[in-house]
């Protein structure tokens, strides 16, 4: 190992950037938004237990249970969505890239047209 000063700077900068991105505290989420290819498909209440199957190029089975949302089954090739952690805090996501499906937890749903008014 022959590290030079610049290497330590690079590692420090990356660490700092990662820590800065984590720091903003997460609040508990209220709703889960399901999007496909950027388009909103459905909105779910996190406090209501539900099941929903999303049919895209593949099928993702979404389950909402005790304030947590997760994908229980999927026939996509990589299964990253099924292995992802359960989400409950605002900003947390589960995505299934093969299906272009994404779940996002939000605290209160803010409509974008309020801002652009």
């Amino acid at each position: 190992m022959r590290l030079k000063y610049g290497d330590l700077i690079i590692i420090a900068v990356i660490l700092l950037a990662a820590i800065l991105m984590i720091i903003p505290k997460k609040s508990n989420g209220e709703q889960v938004i399901l999007t496909c290819d950027g388009e909103e498909i459905a909105v779910f209440d996190l406090n209501k237990n539900t099941e929903y199957t999303f049919h895209g190029s593949y099928e993702n089975k979404l389950i909402i249970e005790n304030g947590y949302a997760f994908i229980s089954e999927s026939d996509c090739p990589d299964k990253v969505c099924v292995r992802s952690k359960k989400i409950s805090k605002s900003g947390e996501t589960i995505c299934c890239l093969p299906n272009k499906m994404m779940l996002t937890v939000v605290s209160i749903k803010i409509k974008t047209d309020v801002i652009s008014k």
């Binding site: 990356i14 990662a18 820590i19 991105m21 999007t35 290819d37 890239l97 272009k100 994404m102």
Partner: peptide
């Protein structure tokens, strides 16, 4: 591709 910035949530862990 997903049309969403929320995916940057993954970035700190990936870094």
């Amino acid at each position: 591709m997903l049309g969403s910035i929320y995916i940057f949530e993954y970035l700190p862990v990936m870094l």
